[in-house]
Amino acid sequence: ELSQDQQALISYIVDAHNKHRIPQDMAKKLLQEQFNAEENFLLLTEMATSHVQVLVEFTKNIPGFQSLDHEDQIALLKGSAVEAMFLRSAQVFTKKLPNGHTEVLEDRIRRSGISEEFMTPMFNFYKSIGELQMMQEEHALLTAITILSPDRPYVKDQQAVERLQEPMLEVLRKVCKLQHPQEPQHFARLLGRLTELRTLNHHHAEMLESWRMS
């Protein structure tokens, strides 16, 4: 069972995760308007910038984060921004959007000019996240856990980061047991997605380069 403190932590994290998201008018633009390739590029770039800004706001709310060394805060955010962005996008693809919206979004991304070799693993990742049927709590906690990865480049005080990440992992483990009692492997599967995220992160620079070139 979850302790009172753990329950409080969950509702706090979920609340922060829901509150800090890409502005709705920007997301709507992506669904409603027709753009040429250049406008598409600018819109997706604008969304990526906005994503980083809301990610920072969410991260400031993770208990203990602001007590970390300032440069370590930057190293953690820099190291995780791309992974957190993929996680957030995966959530969009997991949700039941109004009819046709998922297709419009997918089509827009597919036509963005990113080369196919990067597109396939990205949509495979979205699909594999979708199959896990994660609850909001799991998304929010997994995002926090991703951000609080002590092994990111340039992190000086790894132990301080570990001390923040560990209780999150414990809460996520319990949430998985409670939410998915039929699937004892659920928690391990979630952690497996983090490995997949690292691979996407690793290829992200090349992916951006292929996008810029096209």
Binding site: A48, T49, V52
Partner: peptide, 22 residues
Amino acid sequence: ASGNTIGLEAIIRKALMGKYDE
């Protein structure tokens, strides 16, 4: 400056200081 010319670290630093859209 438009978003696409600002590096990731610059966006993070600004957001950490609570400054958006300069």
